[in-house]
Amino acid sequence: MNIKVAVNGYGVIGKRVADAVRVMPDMELVGVADVATDWRVRTAVGLGLDVFAATPGAGTAMRAAGMPVAGTLADLLSQVDVVVDTTPKKVAALNLEAYRAAGVKAVFQGGESHATTGHSFVAQANYATALGRDATRVVSCNTTSIVRILGALQDSELLARARGVLIRRATDPGESHQGGIMNTLVPESSIPSHQGPDARTVRPDLDVVTIAAKAAHTQTHTHFWTLQLTRPASREEVLETLRAAPRIAFIRMADGLTASNTTVELMRDLGRPRGDMWEVAVWEDVLTVEGDEAYLTYQVNNESIVIPETIDAIRALAGTVTDGPTSIATTDEVLGMRRDFLPDALRAVPA
């Protein structure tokens, strides 16, 4: 029997989760809930989704705007096994008691604190510890990438410690008219930035420190890492360790993929929905290893990297797939994820 899923919040993450649930062979999207009446929710109606009012006031506004309303959030929760909460930061935690009262398992996003659920999730790292839980929290986009990359090296006993600099996008592309920064760069006010400690909610023994700044762009985050290895290693060994891990793909400056916007454009040319990149995109030809130190740079699509993790979290909470690698493989195959965005035959020949 398929897992019946609800999505509460049809925004940047919610609409992507809804689309991913709809294509999974073992899931059924029962409906989405929201409070808005604008183009975003009207798009959901146009796609044939059942839209529920997340609050009584929202139901009144939706009906007044001529939108069909399938029912209340309580009505939606009564029909599902798992709800994915993608409501705005700080709002989601207020919904937890309603989910518990309805007997529905809940997946939260990284905007909420670890304390909200007592469990933070990245599929390749701790799928097993989420099995059967009432709730989990898929960590933020940047934290997800940290756990994927550093976790792969840690599992191979190559990583001693990691020090990273994160250049973050200012805001989501669809909200750049509402705010963000222009013609400046804003360092975060504390070191470490929150991503390093957050990664340790998933991998407690990870020795990581992050420094972050917000820049005047809206397309992807970029990470720069200095890694202390446990022993001298070759570039090929580090590269193959990353290649063996799920949800890491490779780009090359030699192919003209020299900046974040070029990778975004590549995703569109590959036919990705909304231009999404679910993988961490590592610059293969930038990766440098000198003895027991490694240096690498990668990109994170803030709008989409957590989508496959959320799908796996649904399975883990529902307990329908008890093996993490099996769930990851199913999700990745259905979404069409890659290890290389360009086949070898289409790559530039090194000079």
Rank of each mutant, 00 (worst) to 15 (best):
A106E: 13
R137A: 09
E240N: 07
G11Y: 04
A318H: 11
T116A: 15
T210Y: 09
A216M: 03
P68H: 12
G48K: 01
G11T: 07
A125N: 03
T201V: 04
D155G: 14
A152H: 09
T43L: 03
T310V: 12
R274M: 08
P173H: 10
R148W: 14
G14P: 08
A36K: 14
R168S: 00
I149K: 10
S156I: 00
N2M: 00
A199N: 05
V80T: 06
S176A: 13
P204D: 01
T143R: 02
V32C: 00
R315C: 15
R231D: 09
S189A: 10
E303A: 04
M27H: 05
G46C: 00
T87Y: 10
D26H: 11
F341L: 09
A64L: 14
T60P: 06
I13Y: 06
K89M: 11
A44P: 08
G11V: 07
A64S: 15
P325C: 07
G11H: 03
K4D: 06
D134G: 13
R100F: 12
L49F: 08
V7K: 03
R148V: 15
M267V: 00
H119S: 10
Q124I: 13
N2Q: 03
T116Y: 10
E309H: 09
P204V: 02
V12A: 09
P25T: 07
T310W: 03
G71E: 05
Y10S: 01
W278F: 12
G9P: 06
L287M: 13
Q154G: 11
A123Q: 04
D26A: 12
V186C: 05
A135G: 11
G196N: 11
A135V: 12
S113C: 13
G271A: 02
L73K: 04
S120H: 12
P192E: 02
A36Y: 13
G59F: 03
I307V: 15
G103L: 10
D50Q: 14
T226R: 14
T129D: 15
I314W: 03
A135F: 10
R163V: 12
I314G: 02
G14K: 08
G71W: 04
P197I: 08
D155E: 14
P68K: 12
G11F: 01
P273L: 01
D207I: 07
R163F: 12
V165N: 14
A294S: 02
R100N: 15
I149S: 13
D269C: 13
A123L: 08
V238M: 06
L77M: 07
T201Y: 02
L239K: 02
D255Y: 00
W278K: 01
D26V: 07
Y298H: 15
R274I: 00
D269F: 14
V21Q: 08
Y298I: 11
L257P: 07
S234W: 01
G110T: 09
T330Y: 05
P246Y: 05
T326L: 08
D292P: 03
T241M: 05
P88Q: 00
R235G: 04
A199L: 01
F121L: 06
P232F: 00
P308T: 04
E333W: 04
I314N: 05
D312I: 03
G256Q: 09
V321E: 14
S140G: 15
S120Q: 12
V122W: 01
T171P: 02
T201Q: 10
T37E: 10
Q79E: 09
A123H: 09
P187F: 04
D81G: 02
L96F: 14
A348W: 05
G9W: 04
Q124V: 14
L296M: 15
P173Q: 09
A233G: 10
